[in-house]
């Protein structure tokens, strides 16, 4: 499995997405629901109440027994990627990878996996200038469009206001919503959005991106910290700040995890130094449980 920085170094989002997903998909099979469909799956003895249209009359004529012909049903799962592209996503880890870079790779890999699984993938970028929305489609050209949109993405500004977000929650489109964000919000605008999305669409998988230097506070000596969203700076001795920072951070992570789970989201913390497979596995697991 390639590390995120190696994938980023490829400078080729389609290739990176495939590389990240291939190893994961190898040998893995999507569980499929049995039912009415084009592709034959198995025979099942008739039970009263079954739809007579699905009775295999030819078999009944030959063997005088009633069997139902079962085939795979067509899935119509829509995977809706929601990417937070506010300025705070520009936070850069020690490996030179910003949260946005990581999120970009992750979105591409998820989209690839989803496409491979036959799902329709949609992408919404939360940007202060407005929502960039790619509607869900299952056609083969959806991936290149999505890749292009990810590649041209820039993180800037603060979280969009409610009116900008309104179209996102207006349409009811069932599916799996995967939200990638650092959850740095001024009040609780992200959580409110996710709550409404859950109400509108269904499951929400919240991937919380955290840089490793953020988690461990690995800064040393005198450092000028600059807030990416407000631009405010603070000159500090990092060594003296470390313990306080970590205490606050872990408290926040704990409370965030509690809050999101109370809302019914699936919440995962991802370090931008970790490989992508953990997030991808989680996605597949989610998908499987949703399909089951």
């Amino acid at each position: 499995m390639l590390t995120p920085e190696h994938l980023h170094a490829l400078r080729n989002l389609p290739l990176a997405a495939r590389q990240a997903a291939e190893g994961l998909l190898h040998g893995a099979h999507a569980s499929r629901r049995k039912g009415a469909g084009m592709e034959f799956s198995q025979y099942r003895p008739y039970q009263p109440g079954d739809d007579l249209r699905r009775l295999d009359w030819r078999l009944a004529a030959r063997s005088d027994r009633y069997y139902l012909r079962e085939s795979e049903i067509d899935t119509s799962l829509t995977v809706h990627l929601v990417l937070d592209a506010t300025a705070s996503m520009n936070h850069q880890d020690d490996n030179g990878l910003s949260k946005l870079d990581y999120a970009r790779l992750l979105c591409a890999a998820l989209a690839y996996v989803a496409t491979q699984q036959g799902d329709a993938v949609a992408l919404t970028v939360l940007h202060p200038a407005g929502l960039q929305h790619l509607p869900p489609r299952a056609d083969p050209r959806q991936l290149p469009r999505l890749y292009h949109m990810l590649e041209t993405l820039r993180a800037e500004g603060t979280f969009p206001d409610r009116s900008t977000l309104a179209p996102l929650t207006a349409r009811r489109q069932p599916g799996l919503i995967i939200c990638l964000s650092d959850l740095y919000e001024e009040q609780d605008e992200i959580m409110r959005l996710l709550t409404r999305l859950r109400a509108a669409s269904g499951d929400v998988l919240l991937l919380h991106l955290l840089a490793r230097n953020e988690l461990e506070f690995s800064f040393r000596g005198a450092v000028t910290f600059q807030d990416l969203e407000t631009g405010r700076t603070l000159q500090l001795d990092a060594d003296q700040q470390r313990s306080a920072w970590q205490t606050h951070l872990h408290e926040w992570l704990r409370s965030t995890a509690t809050a999101t789970r109370r809302q019914g989201f699936d919440y995962y913390q991802l370090s931008t130094a970790e490989p992508l497979d953990r997030a991808l596995r989680e996605f597949l697991r989610q998908r499987t449980t949703r399909m089951a």
Partner: peptide, 25 residues
């Protein structure tokens, strides 16, 4: 050297630095 600005690190939020920082400065 001790008073030099130090390298600039862009972080997503300063919320956990501020309380100690003012007193420190």
């Amino acid at each position: 050297w001790n008073r030099r600005p130090g390298r600039v690190v862009q972080v997503g939020s300063l919320r956990w630095l501020e309380t100690g920082a003012n007193r420190r400065l």
